[in-house]
Simulated scan of single mutants.
Amino acid sequence: MSKVAEKVADSLYRKDYISEEEKEIYSYGYEILIDNIGKTFLLLMVGAIIHQFVATLVFVVVFTTLRSYCGGYHASKTWQCNLLTVILWGIVIVGTYTEAIIKQCEALTIAIAVVSELVIYQCAPVEHQNKKLTNEKKRGTEDVH
């Protein structure tokens, strides 16, 4: 992935779309983009194979939206991030297979959902050394809490 990203950045540099100083930034950005597109494609394919395409699509949309607005855990290695994403997806898919159990424990399911929302409301957005929060976002969270 990194070699493909570097080639794309080099191509942009040779065509004078970006400066030499920007090559590393573009290469990193393309590497992340390629990784995320690949991960999404693979999740959707596996979801389709196990007849859980809709659940997988909902997971990808919700997970991506939550991460983009709330921040979250940032793994130090790409494989750790990918593994955590697959584990979370797996939990969602297992949850779809245990629908009968969840229906029997409806009160527990609602309680878990409410607690989850409260945790997100209280903790989001999450600041990380690689994703600093702007003063505006910090002020916005202070006003809410």
Rank of each mutant, 00 (worst) to 15 (best):
Q80P: 05
E127A: 10
K77Y: 09
A5N: 10
T64M: 09
Y13R: 15
Y97L: 08
L133I: 01
N82G: 10
L12E: 04
G95C: 02
V58M: 03
C123E: 11
K132W: 05
A5S: 15
V8P: 08
K77C: 05
R67M: 01
Q122L: 12
V8N: 03
I102C: 03
R14D: 12
V61K: 08
H51I: 02
H145A: 07
G71P: 12
V115H: 00
V126P: 07
V86Q: 04
K7P: 01
L43I: 09
Y17P: 02
N82H: 13
E136K: 10
E127I: 09
T56E: 03
I93G: 00
S11R: 14
N135G: 11
K138W: 09
Q80F: 01
E22W: 10
F53D: 00
L42K: 11
P125E: 09
F59R: 00
N36R: 11
P125M: 02
V62W: 08
V86A: 12
A124D: 07
G90Y: 01
T109W: 04
V61A: 14
W89S: 07
A75L: 05
G38F: 11
I32V: 13
D35N: 14
E136I: 00
I110H: 11
D35R: 14
R14N: 13
E22L: 08
N135V: 00
K23Y: 04
V54Y: 12
T64Y: 08
K15W: 08
F59A: 00
L118I: 12
I101G: 08
E20K: 15
I101K: 11
W79P: 01
E136W: 00
L133N: 06
L83N: 01
T109R: 05
V4M: 09
F63D: 02
R139A: 10
E106Y: 05
I18Q: 02
A5K: 08
C105E: 14
E31C: 03
I112T: 13
A9E: 04
I32L: 11
F53W: 07
Q80C: 02
F63K: 02
Y26N: 05
I37R: 13
S2W: 05
E31M: 09
G38V: 02
T98R: 12
Y26D: 00
E24M: 04
S76L: 09
A55N: 03
T134I: 04
V4P: 07
V54G: 00
N36V: 03
G38P: 07
V8E: 05
S116K: 06
L43C: 11
L44K: 05
K15T: 11
V4G: 00
V61W: 04
A5C: 10
S19A: 06
I93C: 04
E99A: 12
K103M: 12
K131M: 07
E6N: 14
I102H: 14
A107R: 08
G90H: 01
V46Y: 03
A5F: 01
A48W: 13
T65W: 14
K137A: 13
Y69G: 04
I37V: 15
V94M: 11
V60F: 07
A100S: 15
V54D: 09
I87D: 10
V62E: 06
R67L: 02
S11C: 13
D10K: 15
V58H: 04
S27I: 01
E21S: 05
V126Y: 07
